[in-house]
């Protein structure tokens, strides 16, 4: 993976972390308006970053595969590979 791609992946991981934290908090505070707004903000950023990554580099979910470039799902590195990090 090139450096730009790794930077994009790091950005996705950062947004996904914020979303995950909000999800766990909201499970036990489902009426908390500040937490709901925080969740909305980072969910939007995560969705945009994921869409851009999938357009430029490759799928995050099998569902996000652009089939015009073949079945990239198995042609790109898996997350445990050194080169994917």
């Amino acid at each position: 993976m090139n450096d730009m791609r790794k930077r994009h992946m790091k950005q996705i991981q950062t947004y996904a972390f914020a979303v995950k934290e909000a999800v766990l908090y909201l499970d036990t505070h489902p009426e908390d308006k500040t937490a709901l707004a925080y969740f909305d903000k980072y969910r939007k950023l995560l969705r945009e970053a994921t869409r851009t990554y999938e357009e430029h580099y490759g799928p995050i979910t099998a569902d996000g595969t652009d089939t015009s470039r073949g079945w990239a799902w198995v042609l790109e590195p898996w997350p445990w590979e050194l080169d994917a990090n």
């Binding site: 790091k10 991981q13 979910t61 099998a62 799902w73």
Partner: peptide, 11 residues
């Protein structure tokens, strides 16, 4: 649904 990324990088 599997997401093809680690939660936090390992290198």
């Amino acid at each position: 649904i599997y997401e093809k990324k680690l939660q936090y990088p390992v290198k």
